[in-house]
Design a protein around this nucleic acid. Structure first.
Lengths: 341, 341
DNA sequence: TGAGTGAATTGGAACGTTCCAGTAAAAACA
DNA sequence: TGTTTTTACTGGAACGTTCCAATTCACTCA
């Protein structure tokens, strides 16, 4: 029972309103929205103008429902508080935005149960693709959901384990990285090099250790390894224990930069001259490495490139249906700074 | 013209399939999904079982289209690489997830143009709420979009400027923070205290400076201020300049922890004894403060509490239509560590 | 027994897009 | 000139939910 013309409309304008305003059909408006080339330039302009005039906002939910593609990518990260992952997340998000995709972020916080919850939620939201750096544990359940969703899924940095896991995996060549680090330290005249940090038994730890082990084996040396949490605190607390048990250690490779920065800070405290008495190399080359004292040598995975490559691969998969290679190892590089010079 | 029963269905199951399986109507299934109390326990169980049996996945796009509520919250952050913001983002995301909301993340990277693009994209996705820590500049355009969207919007840490800006603003009490820092340093016997870092003319800088200025004024001292980027590098490069121009400075308040950590690292390099020769206090109390050398005193905004409070306020606004107070200053606290002890 | 009540369930109409098959007009060709 | 091809556009039917008004059913009570 609408009485007369209402100057103010109650609902958000839809393509129907735009169509009326521009004097075309809703289908034409839809074509304009999709950038279809079959639309004459003049009508395209008219439609765009009509949109601007009435303040039209595209409703993606409707589009998603109809077209079954959401323009959303789910990013599940095991530890968002680690600057390494944050940097990746930020760069990845920006690269996606450049291609018109939005990023839904989820921090699984190393908790498998939370991880399952996050993945389910993202599936419900109809994400067009998944990037996941998994938390360890509960792999089967996570995989079951991911497989059922039939959504393009890529694993980064870490990989879920299981016979049902066919999702492409892209990660820096950690093994080569630790090999570089070990060779570098010995080239600098080190006699005894230890490896510090990383939880035992985890794939990443194994990989980051393997290059080191390889080099030591070739030299006929006994490896010195102290595993543990990949945190600053671990690095800080463990260095004295290391020096006590192995007083001749003059070189350290750390599982990641956080551990290495912890070591640096402990050395500053105890008056150990990093770079001279003890040379230190970290892993990941996070921003802090440049400004620590002394600046920290690190194995860089070139995160900007890595993030960009990952974004392009998932987009290629989604848009052109080009499934990425099952396993890619991206190159790493030793960034030499004062801590090992 | 379906011929016989198909054992495998081509499409994802919908509530209709669930309804058939459970022997109820789609409406009942919908009620179960919404947790409506009017559904008998026995049917609720039956429906849940049917869902599990056929592998039903909720389609939020459809729900969003119909109900105009997406369960998505947009989080727009000016600099995701700053660990302070990252910590907030991670905690905020987890708190939301606990209430069934997903977080769409966008890094505006201090770029107003990017910020506008991000906000538009989020509006299209129908986010039910916005949390924004704005990049400076281009405020009018961003505000225009936000206002047009009529979506609950809260500003955190920073605020957009403009007569059209009525969005609630919640931020730590920075002024009180710098006052605490200044009082603390003088209580520790400091004679000359300087303020370091923060871009000139920005509201956050003004606020983080004002408590310091206030204390100096009361003492009748001349303020010593060096503004600039809020980065480690700035802190590192500026400390020597400061000591040169003002050799008697024995206390420093830094715009944020990054600047302070830069200072610490420069002091380590130059052999200045932090804690004795020079006492340093930072701002934000990021995780790194605990493990730096020496551990860094800092003004804590209690980010876990802050993130939780923000999440609850935006949810309250969305669910119960309780608009938060226009301006909230959350309490801050001085965390005293060795750098000022 | 019949009316009245409340609890539990239901079918149909939305929501705003995209997709599809089709049409009208213009252009190209024989 | 008539036929085909091409170009630009169109109307209706989906997509999978939620919402609403309506209906059924089992009770209670006079």
């Amino acid at each position: 029972m609408e009485s007369g013309a209402k100057p103010l409309m109650r609902h958000r304008p839809t393509i129907l309103d735009v169509a009326k305003q521009a004097g075309v059909s809703k289908s034409t408006v839809s074509l304009v929205l999709q950038g279809n080339a079959a639309v004459k330039e003049s009508t395209r302009v008219a439609v765009r103008k009509a949109m601007a005039d009435i303040g039209y906002v595209y409703n993606r939910s409707a589009a998603t429902l109809r077209s079954a593609s959401s323009g959303l990518i789910g990013l599940v990260i095991n530890d968002l508080r680690n600057p390494f992952f944050t940097e990746f997340a930020a760069l990845f998000q920006m690269e996606l935005a450049r291609h018109g995709f939005a990023t839904v972020l989820a921090n699984s916080d190393e908790d498998p149960a939370l991880q399952v919850q996050m993945i389910s939620s993202l599936v419900e939201h109809g994400v067009s693709g998944f990037i996941i750096s998994p938390s360890y544990g509960g792999d089967e359940e996570a995989l079951a959901i991911l497989n059922a969703a039939q959504t393009p899924t890529m694993q980064v940095f870490r990989s879920l384990a299981g016979p049902e896991c066919h999702h492409p995996f892209i990660a820096p060549d950690y093994q080569h990285g630790s090999q570089l680090a070990a060779e570098h330290l010995f080239a600098k005249g080190r006699k005894q090099v230890a490896f510090l940090g990383g939880l035992e038994g985890r794939p990443v730890t194994e990989e980051r250790m393997s290059g080191y082990l390889q080099v030591l084996k070739k030299r006929g040396d006994e490896p010195i390894i102290l595993t543990g949490q990949a945190t600053r605190t671990f690095g800080k607390e463990t260095i004295s224990k290391l020096r006590q048990d192995h007083p001749d250690v003059d070189g350290v490779i750390c599982f990641n930069d956080l551990v290495a920065l912890g070591v640096l800070s402990a050395c500053a405290e105890e008056g150990i001259a990093v770079g001279a008495d003890l040379k230190v190399v970290g892993f990941d080359d996070i921003e802090d490495c440049q400004d620590s004292y002394p600046p920290l040598s690190s194995i860089s995975s070139n995160i900007p490139e890595f993030a960009k490559a990952t974004a392009q691969q998932i987009l290629g998969w989604i848009k052109e249906d080009e499934k990425p290679k099952p396993l890619v190892r991206s190159p790493v590089e030793l960034i030499e700074r004062a801590s090992s010079r």
